[in-house]
Deep mutational scan, measured.
Amino acid sequence: MKVIFLKDVKGMGKKGEIKNVADGYANNFLFKQGLAIEATPANLKALE
């Protein structure tokens, strides 16, 4: 799943980066902790 990092995550990515991560990792950790959001077309447009 493609995500946009909202904060730096050690060993994974930096704020503003777009990366592919495992679905479970994104849903169970990154999204719940507020560290990333899904890289949807609307979210990608908002990032620009």
Rank of each mutant, 00 (worst) to 15 (best):
A42T: 08
E48D: 13
A36W: 02
G34R: 08
N27F: 15
I18G: 01
I18D: 03
A46L: 12
A46G: 11
A36Q: 00
N20M: 15
G24F: 14
L47R: 07
K14R: 11
V9M: 05
K7E: 14
K19W: 11
K32P: 15
A46H: 13
L30V: 01
T40Q: 03
K15P: 06
K19L: 09
T40I: 05
A42W: 01
G13A: 14
M1R: 10
F29I: 14
L47E: 07
F5N: 00
E38H: 07
L47W: 15
K15C: 11
G34H: 10
V3Y: 00
G34P: 00
N20P: 05
T40C: 04
P41E: 14
Y25D: 09
G13K: 00
F29S: 06
A22E: 15
M12L: 11
P41H: 09
V9C: 05
A22T: 14
G24N: 15
M1W: 06
Y25S: 08
G24M: 12
G34A: 07
G16A: 02
K15Q: 09
A42P: 04
D23N: 13
D23G: 11
A42H: 09
N43M: 07
E17T: 07
G13C: 06
N27S: 10
G16L: 05
A39Y: 11
K19P: 00
G11I: 02
V21T: 02
N20R: 13
L35W: 11
M12D: 03
E38D: 04
F31V: 10
N27G: 09
I18W: 03
K2T: 09
T40V: 04
V9I: 08
A36T: 02
A36M: 03
V9G: 00
A36H: 00
M1N: 04
P41W: 08
A42N: 14
K15M: 10
G34F: 07
M12G: 06
L47K: 06
Y25P: 08
G16P: 00
V9W: 05
K14P: 00
K32Y: 09
G24E: 15
E38Y: 03
K19V: 12
G13Q: 01
M1Y: 07
Y25A: 09
N27T: 12
N27M: 13
D8K: 04
L6F: 02
L35T: 04
Y25G: 06
I4T: 01
G24S: 12
G13S: 03
I37Y: 04
E48T: 13
L6M: 08
M1C: 12
G11Q: 05
D8T: 08
T40L: 05
F31S: 03
D23Y: 15
G11F: 07
G24H: 15
N27D: 10
G13I: 02
L30N: 00
F5Q: 00
L6C: 10
N27R: 15
I4V: 11
D23E: 15
L30G: 00
I4N: 00
P41S: 11
N28Y: 09
K32Q: 13
N28C: 14
K15G: 03
A39N: 02
A46V: 11
A36K: 00
I18A: 04
I4P: 00
G34T: 02
Y25C: 12
A39G: 05
F29H: 14
N43K: 04
K45R: 14
K45D: 11
E48Q: 13
F5L: 08
A26P: 04
A46Q: 13
A42Q: 14
N43G: 06
L47Y: 14
T40H: 04
G34E: 08
N20K: 12
E48N: 10
D23K: 14
D23A: 15
K14W: 07
F31T: 06
Q33F: 15
A22C: 07
L47A: 10
E17S: 06
G34N: 09
I4C: 05
N28W: 07
A39H: 05
A36N: 01
G11S: 04
G16Y: 08
N28D: 14
L44W: 02
G34S: 07
M1G: 03
E38P: 11
A26V: 07
F29K: 07
E48K: 08
G11W: 06
K15V: 10
F5E: 00
K45W: 04
A42K: 09
E38G: 04
K2Q: 10
L47F: 14
F5T: 00
F5V: 01
P41I: 11
V9Y: 04
Y25H: 07
I18P: 00
K2D: 09
A26E: 09
G13L: 01
F31N: 04
K45I: 14
N28V: 06
N27H: 12
G24Y: 15
K7A: 13
K2V: 07
A46M: 15
F5Y: 06
K32H: 11
M12N: 05
L47N: 07
I37E: 03
I18V: 14
N28P: 02
A39F: 07
E38M: 07
A36F: 01
K15A: 11
F5M: 06
A39M: 05
K45H: 10
E38L: 06
F29N: 09
Q33V: 09
T40E: 03
K19Q: 08
N27L: 15
A22P: 12
N20D: 13
D23Q: 15
V3G: 00
P41Q: 11
V3Q: 00
K45M: 13
A39K: 01
K2G: 04
F31H: 03
L44F: 02
L6T: 09
V21F: 07
F29D: 09
E17G: 03
L44G: 02
G16R: 03
D8I: 02
Q33A: 10
V21R: 00
V21M: 07
L35M: 06
M12T: 07
K2A: 09
V9N: 00
I18K: 02
A22R: 12
P41F: 09
G13R: 00
K32T: 13
A42Y: 05
Q33N: 14
I37T: 06
N27K: 15
V3H: 00
E38Q: 09
G16F: 09
V21C: 11
N20Q: 13
K10I: 12
D8N: 13
N28S: 11
N43D: 06
G24C: 11
K14F: 12
T40S: 09
D23C: 15
K15T: 08
T40K: 03
L44P: 03
T40D: 05
K2L: 15
A46C: 14
N20I: 15
K15W: 06
F5G: 01
Q33H: 14
A36I: 06
K32I: 12
L44D: 05
N28G: 13
E38C: 08
L6P: 00
V21H: 01
N20F: 14
K19M: 13
G34D: 04
A46E: 12
G11M: 06
K2E: 09
G11H: 08
K45Q: 11
D8V: 02
E38I: 06
A42L: 07
K19E: 04
K15D: 01
Q33L: 14
G11T: 03
A26C: 08
V21W: 03
K2Y: 13
Q33S: 11
N43I: 08
K7F: 13
K14E: 08
L44A: 03
L6Y: 01
L6E: 01
A46S: 14
K32R: 10
V9P: 00
K14Y: 11
K19F: 07
K7S: 10
A26L: 09
K2N: 14
F29V: 14
K32F: 10
M12Q: 13
N20L: 15
E48I: 12
L6N: 02
V21I: 10
T40N: 09
L47S: 07
M1F: 09
G16S: 05
N28L: 09
A39V: 06
K19T: 08
K15F: 09
K7N: 08
M1E: 02
K10T: 13
G11A: 05
D8G: 04
L47V: 07
L30M: 03
E17I: 03
N43E: 06
E17D: 11
G16N: 13
Q33W: 15
I4H: 01
N20H: 15
G13H: 05
G24P: 11
F29R: 05
M12C: 14
K15R: 12
N43A: 11
Y25N: 05
A46R: 14
G11E: 06
L30H: 01
I37R: 05
K2P: 07
G11V: 02
M12S: 08
K2S: 10
T40F: 04
K45T: 10
P41R: 08
A26K: 05
V3C: 02
N27C: 14
K2W: 07
K19R: 12
E17W: 03
G16V: 00
F31R: 04
K14V: 12
V9A: 03
L44Y: 03
E48F: 09
M1K: 09
E38S: 06
K15H: 05
G11N: 10
D23T: 15
K10F: 15
I37G: 01
G34W: 04
F29Y: 11
G16I: 00
I37S: 03
T40P: 04
F5S: 01
F5K: 00
M1A: 04
G13D: 00
A46P: 06
E38A: 11
I37D: 01
L30W: 04
F29P: 05
K15S: 07
D8W: 05
A26Q: 06
G16M: 05
